[in-house]
Every structure is written in structure tokens, then in C-alpha cells.
């Protein structure tokens, strides 16, 4: 049943990625089709980083994408590798790589969020002082 758990996670992550990636593409890359301004400018990107909901969104997208992709890669590699012990080693390596990438990506998102929030506060203070 262990594999059923992983497989179910893989399927659910795939379904969730459809929505998350769909939202990401529509909001960020093809928003101009709906008459809104380009969403990939640095200031707008930093504006998104400052919002906690986008922090959660980015981390969810990262985690689900990594899990879905690396589990799929593990399945493909286990087809090519005939030695059972080598399969286990590959699975461990991919798990470690996935955790490290997730940790690094999450940390980057937090730093971006922190910087963007700090910058937003500074801009607000300057506006108050000038205004």
C-alpha cells in the first residue's frame, strides 16, 4: 500500500499543478490578453512577493512541482535500472535532492517576501514623510 500512497500523491499533485500553473500563466504571462498591463515588470513582481498569499502560492507550486516531477523521474529511472539496490539508492538521492531544492526554494521565497515587505514599508514611510 506504500506505493498507492505515493501514487495517489503524484496524481493529486498533478491535478493541483494544473490549477496552480494555469493561474500562474494566466496571471503572469497572458494577463495582457484581458486588457490589463504587463505583469512581469520588476515592481509588480516585487509587489506580488510582498503578499503572503503569493508566498504560500509559490511554496505550494514548488513543493507540488518537485514531488510530481521527481516521483515521475524515479519511476522512469526504475524502469531503466535493473538492480534493486541501485533503484533504492536512486530513490534516496532523488528524495534528498527534492528536499534540498524545496528548502532552498522556500528560503528564497521567504527572503524575497521579506525584502519586498521591507521595501514596501520603506516606500510607504517615504510617501508619508513626503506627503
Amino acid at each position: 500500500m506504500k506505493e498507492t500512497k505515493y501514487w495517489t500523491g503524484h496524481i493529486l499533485a498533478g491535478a493541483a499543478l494544473l490549477f496552480l500553473l494555469g493561474f500562474h500563466f494566466i496571471y503572469t504571462h497572458i494577463a495582457f490578453l484581458f486588457g490589463t498591463e504587463d505583469n512581469i515588470t520588476e515592481s509588480l513582481s516585487k509587489g506580488r512577493d510582498a503578499q503572503p498569499v503569493f508566498l504560500v502560492f509559490f511554496i505550494a507550486l514548488l513543493g507540488l512541482g518537485l514531488y510530481h516531477g521527481l516521483y515521475g523521474l524515479k519511476n522512469i529511472l526504475s524502469e531503466l535500472i535493473t538492480c534493486e539496490n541501485c533503484r533504492k539508492i536512486v530513490a534516496i538521492i532523488l528524495t534528498v535532492v527534492g528536499i534540498l531544492l524545496f528548502a532552498f526554494g522556500s528560503y528564497s521565497s521567504f527572503v524575497a517576501h521579506k525584502n519586498a515587505t521591507g521595501m514596501k514599508n520603506t516606500v510607504s514611510r517615504l510617501e508619508v514623510n513626503n506627503g
Partner: peptide, 15 residues
């Protein structure tokens, strides 16, 4: 049966 068929060498290996 699910214990066996849902294992790492079970149904999910089929592509």
C-alpha cells in the same frame, strides 16, 4: 489483495 497489488512491485509499475 491491495497490500500486494499496491506494493512497489504491483499495479503502479505498469505503464
Amino acid at each position: 489483495r491491495n497490500e500486494k497489488t499496491g506494493s512497489s512491485h504491483g499495479a503502479f509499475k505498469c505503464h
